[in-house]
Nucleic acid binder design. Structure first.
Length: 667
DNA sequence: TATGTCCTTTTTTTT
DNA sequence: AAAGGACATA
């Protein structure tokens, strides 16, 4: 038998081998769906004579893409995997757009705006909107984009007055992006669809390039992503989609589980293979997960089963408050690690919202437990990195007004709000970018000499860099750039020493990485800048702390697994979230709980607090309703006894073992 | 007019 | 507990 089929169960093997038509693999949590995808890639390339460059695997996050690439590399040694595409829909979209930009009236050096830039633009359009309506309009626009509605179509479809206003804002927003030669995240999906619909020859090119598609986490695709899949694979349906409707947790971002059903409508010959054996979790964990998800209305009851042992009891721990919760988890990890000789990396702390991470960070630091946060603020969202990339974006694309504003005012160099407003007015009248407007005589005549000088100094500086950016080594230019703007000094002048140091170190790391890349690949600063726009999405740097407790949001933990999971803050208002108390949204929260539980292999500890600090105020908390849904036979409760002494004694024992762990025989 | 400071508000999840 | 906005200062 082929080595690429070895060790797979019959369903998995069937899923790998099936190539006669479109295939949907309905894979329960932990049933080895990623394994099916990686093996199938290897099988296609090594056994079916399909070149790797004709195969594309789509993952949900860039991190997942990186992991999948690594796994495939192990299965396909040497150059066999060369040219294989493993990326998110967004990265694939970006790659397509860079090549095809001109057909859509964009220049190839268009900028990619992050969410903050996009929101700023929208905020300018709406003229001082309150937070709520800004959010609402932004989310409406996103919904429309994901449903592939153009601004005019959105306006036609708009019902009430709010929606009409939002549709008008959508139009203005899209015009602005066009003027900036910029696209937002949603455009990375939407524009390729527009391209393929309007330019059949472009579609033909990409169809012949990407001949087989594998889509992971299919339940979380949105309408536009589905359309890309449809366009690229055509009536032949050369694809394998893998998904689990119980793990759909991105409806708020336009994902639609309905896409699972739609597959059958669009390809009547769709083959469906369910994977029901779980290879990850103990039976207790599986039963607990099932007992929760059972409360959602589902098409059909899934019968996930496992041959792994019964496993440790699941613990529910009541904590006094959020501080106590963090401390409890830290101590338990210490004690458990000491007792069972595990590694730090065997533990994960999962929570609903990013802000919950802070207290756990503190507690882990205090207890000298190494940790690593995944998700949360990415490297490229850090202010210092965004500052530098603003310069790079501007150098590559002078129409990028948001980049102009950020670069021109960071560090401060005598260009203030009033100057920028005048510049903006003029640029608006003449329909040109801020950078170009600086050099218009009509503008210069009406500006005091001092402000004009500041602007000219800045624009000339950028212009000079841009002129050299295509030829000179990136490293030297970057060093020069940072020295010229005196960024390091500015950091230390404006931040306290600790923060400044950290930021400067981040920036150095970024610059060194860019310089090295420029040298190795012989890329110019301009070319690198295009990669940086991509890197904004490809968030990962390679170095992951090898042995550290993982901290992650539930969303970011999807697809991952850990021997021991701490599911924290499982309270009403948090999980389910305050805004998601009923209907579809509550069901999605339940799936989130389900995802959390099924991340665990052997150990699962769930914590909740009697009260916690919420934005400065202390509020009382109630345990999540999902805790009541857990099968009581599988759980053990702690901290809820009537004898308060028992907790203290238990706590004492834990502290003692934690202490031993620290003093214990080295690390 | 540019900038720094103080004081307000705010919390979902991510590409 | 951080970020953005109003206000005071240079």
């Amino acid at each position: 038998m082929s080595s690429h089929l070895a060790g797979l169960n019959p369903q998995q093997r069937e899923a790998v081998r099936y190539l006669d038509g479109p295939l949907l693999v309905l894979a329960g949590a932990g049933s080895g769906k990623t394994r099916v995808i990686t093996r199938k890639i290897a099988y296609l390339v090594a056994e079916c004579g399909i070149e790797a460059r004709h195969v594309a695997a789509i993952t949900f996050t860039n991190k997942a893409a990186r992991e999948m690439r690594d796994r495939v590399a192990e299965l396909l040694p040497g150059k066999q995997a060369k040219g294989l595409t493993v990326s998110t829909f967004h990265s694939l979209g970006l790659r397509i757009l860079r090549v095809e930009a001109r057909r859509l009236g964009y220049k190839p050096r268009f900028s990619v705006l992050d969410a903050a830039d996009a929101q700023q633009i929208l905020s300018d359009i709406l003229k001082n909107p309150d937070r709520a309506s800004l959010r609402q309009v932004a989310s409406l626009i996103s919904t429309w984009k994901n449903a592939l509605l153009a601004p005019t179509e959105a306006r036609a479809a708009a019902g009430d007055d709010d929606e009409i206003q939002a549709a008008l804002a959508y139009q203005a927003y899209q015009d602005t992006l066009r003027a900036y030669q910029a696209v937002d995240f949603d455009d990375l999906i939407r524009l390729p669809v527009v391209l393929f619909r309007e330019h059949p020859e472009a579609l033909a090119t990409w169809r012949s390039r990407l001949r087989y598609l594998l889509v992971d986490e299919y339940q979380d695709t949105n309408g536009a992503q589905y359309e890309i899949l449809k366009l690229l694979t055509g009536v032949g349906g050369r694809f394998t989609a893998v998904g689990d409707d119980d793990q759909a947790i991105y409806a708020w971002r336009g994902a639609d589980v309905e896409n699972l059903r739609r597959l059958n409508d669009d390809w009547p010959n769709l083959r469906v293979i369910p994977l029901t054996q779980n290879y990850r979790s103990s039976q207790r964990i599986l039963r607990a997960a099932n007992s929760v998800i059972r409360n959602n209305p589902r098409l059909q009851e899934k019968n996930l089963w496992s041959e792994l042992g019964l496993g440790d009891p699941i613990e529910i721990v009541r904590c006094r408050d959020d501080r106590h919760e963090a401390e409890t988890v830290a101590l338990r990890i210490s004690a458990h690690k000491f007792e069972h000789r595990t590694r730090h990396a065997d533990y994960a702390i999962l929570y609903r919202g990013n802000h919950q991470a802070r207290l756990f960070e503190e507690a882990l630091r205090e207890n000298r437990i190494p940790y690593q946060i995944s998700g949360g603020q990415s490297f490229f969202d850090k202010a210092e990195i965004k500052d530098l990339t603003a310069y790079l974006r501007l150098i590559a694309n002078p129409d990028d007004d948001p980049a102009f504003i950020r670069a021109a005012t960071t560090p401060r160099r005598g260009i203030g709000a009033a100057t920028l407003e005048k510049l903006g007015d003029h640029a608006g009248q003449r329909h040109i970018g801020l950078f170009a407007a600086v050099y218009e005589t009509g503008f210069q005549e009406n500006l005091p000499a001092r402000q004009l000088e500041s602007l000219l100094t800045f624009a000339d500086f950028i212009g000079r860099l841009a002129g050299r950016a295509e030829r000179e080594p990136a490293g030297r230019l970057l060093d020069e750039l940072l020295a010229a703007i005196q960024y390091e000094q500015w950091l230390f002048d404006n931040e306290d020493e600790r923060a400044a140091r950290a930021k400067w170190a981040n920036l150095r790391e970024f610059v060194d990485w860019l310089s090295k890349k420029g040298e190795e690949d012989g890329k110019s600063l301009i070319e690198l800048t295009q990669t940086v726009a991509l890197m904004n999405l490809l968030e990962g740097r390679e170095d992951e702390a090898p042995d550290a407790v993982r901290l992650s949001t539930l969303h970011a933990a999807k697809g991952l697994e850990y021997p021991h999971v701490f599911l924290v803050g499982v309270e009403e208002e948090i999980l389910p979230h305050r805004e998601c108390q009923e209907g579809n949204r509550l069901e999605e929260e339940r799936r989130l709980m389900y995802v959390g539980i099924t991340r665990a292999r052997r150990g699962l500890t769930i914590t909740w607090c009697g009260r916690r600090k919420r934005g400065g105020e202390i509020v009382d908390c109630a345990p999540s309703r999902f805790l009541d849904e857990l099968d009581p036979a599988e759980i053990r409760r702690a901290g809820e006894t009537s004898d308060p002494g028992q907790d203290a004694r238990e706590d004492g024992r834990r502290r003692l073992s934690a202490l031993k762990a620290m003093l214990g025989p080295g690390k």
